[in-house]
Design a binder for these strands. Structure first.
Length: 227
DNA sequence: AGCTGATCATTG
DNA sequence: CAATGATCAGCT
């Protein structure tokens, strides 16, 4: 993707400052600084913006199951918003386990650990704005409040109960108040193993946990209120 | 217009 | 195939 890359931030304060320093810049300016080619659209590079920010902020790259900033325990999430600060897309968190759920709990779940601390970087990204002209908004670091954690716990329990009962294929994006379970795969033919109500393995479409836009919108608004 | 289901690239 | 990074786009 690029010939250069930022160094790994040494503290949360340094990471936040680095993120704040690029607020207001366009993706085009950022890409040019790092000699990264800007795609005309994201049809075939849906993760381009996220990877660009990883480079700029010095995240440890790779598809390892660790936070983007390992030493700091912080996950980086870009959040596409419109000019009014409303999220345009749900936020993917992680793949959902569909087997080996005996003894699973929200407290120990991968998803909870994954979003325990997040650096949100809003991007004004209405589709009519060319990629290069999209602007980086005001970044901030967030951890779920007790209330937010509770809301996610409720949804996680509902969705996980259905998975355990072998009803994963009955789950739709409508389930859950703040979390949802949706396909996360190369295509609709992809398969992963799940367990049916009789404990027998079967193949089904891989799913992921996503944060609904109303939830991320509230996180955004809460942050502004607390400024 | 918003949302749900589908999809794309890359790496280990 | 699973995990990383997400957005696309047709349907309601």
């Amino acid at each position: 993707m690029a010939p250069t890359k930022a160094s790994i931030p040494k503290s949360e304060a340094q990471l936040l400052q680095r993120a704040q320093n690029i607020a207001g810049l366009s993706l085009g300016e950022m890409a040019t600084r790092y000699n990264i080619v800007i795609p005309k659209n994201l049809n075939k590079e849906k993760g381009w913006v996220g990877l660009l920010l990883e480079h700029v902020l010095g995240a440890s790259a790779g598809s390892r199951p660790e936070p983007d900033f390992v030493e700091l325990g912080i996950e980086l999430k870009t959040l596409p918003i419109n000019r009014n600060g409303k999220p345009l897309e749900t936020t993917f968190v992680c793949v959902a386990p569909l087997k080996n759920l005996i003894g699973a709990s929200w407290q120990n779940s991968h998803i909870r650990n994954k979003i325990a601390r997040v650096l949100w970087v809003p991007i004004i990204a209405e589709r009519e704005i060319p990629i290069a002209e999209r602007l980086i908004g005001t970044p901030f670091i967030w951890s779920p409040s007790p209330e937010e954690d509770h809301l996610m716990a409720l949804d996680w329990q509902e969705l996980t109960d259905m998975i355990v009962l072998g009803q994963v294929e009955q789950i739709t994006g409508k389930h859950g108040q703040v979390l949802q379970l949706r396909p996360k795969a190369a295509n609709s033919q992809a398969k992963t193993q799940a367990i049916d109500k009789n404990g027998k393995p079967f193949l089904t479409l891989p799913r992921g946990f996503y944060l609904k836009t109303a939830f991320t919108h509230q996180i955004l608004k809460n942050h502004l209120r607390l400024d």
